[in-house]
């Protein structure tokens, strides 16, 4: 099937089998390898992308379902060539170690702070509870998202 997905603001037309998962199309057809795969059971969340602005697991969505819709991946987080505040905050607060869950965590975090500019620790932990991290114990991920919220608040 021929489908067209807007990815990070650019329309991409690809011919795919219906069974192809969105994550595979992003990674192997469009070369956007910042979206990762970590499990087979919709449990880990490292494949998270934004579908029309909403965080979803791209391993549990066929690419054909995204036909005509807008997808945002980690590669689309930068704004006018500058790091998104969530990206800067993850580095500043040591919110990552191996980096494998990081794109997903940042995408979820970026949506949270848009919807809730002043999230509590519980708000943040709840928001990222569909995303596993094996390295950080989540402490610095929570800090990074909080820092990003503060950065955005301070600049607006």
């Amino acid at each position: 099937m021929e489908i067209t997905i807007s990815v990070n603001g650019t329309d991409n037309t690809v011919d795919v089998e219906p069974r192809m998962l969105l994550v595979d199309v992003l990674r192997t057809r469009l070369g956007l390898t910042g979206t990762h795969i970590g499990c087979d059971t919709t449990s880990c969340g490292v494949c998270t992308v934004l579908l029309d602005g909403t965080p979803v697991k791209s391993c549990t969505l066929f690419a054909v379902q995204a036909d005509g819709r807008a997808v945002k991946t980690v590669e689309g987080l930068k704004q006018n060539g500058d790091l998104h505040p969530i990206q800067a905050a993850f580095k500043e607060a040591h919110g990552l170690q191996c980096g494998y869950c990081t794109p997903a965590m940042m995408l979820v975090g970026s949506v949270l702070i848009e919807e809730n500019p002043d999230p509590s620790e519980d708000d943040i932990r709840w928001a990222i509870s569909g995303n596993l991290c094996r390295c950080t114990g989540y402490i610095n991920i929570v800090k990074a998202i909080r820092l990003a919220a503060e950065t955005v608040a301070a600049s607006s």
């Binding site: 956007l32 040591h94 980096g99 494998y100």
Partner: peptide
Amino acid sequence: HNVRRIEDDRFIQGAGNYLDDIV
């Protein structure tokens, strides 16, 4: 010193190069 991690620049931009990224 709490030097911010040098390797982070690629990871936060989705530019890490993991095994499955190799084609």
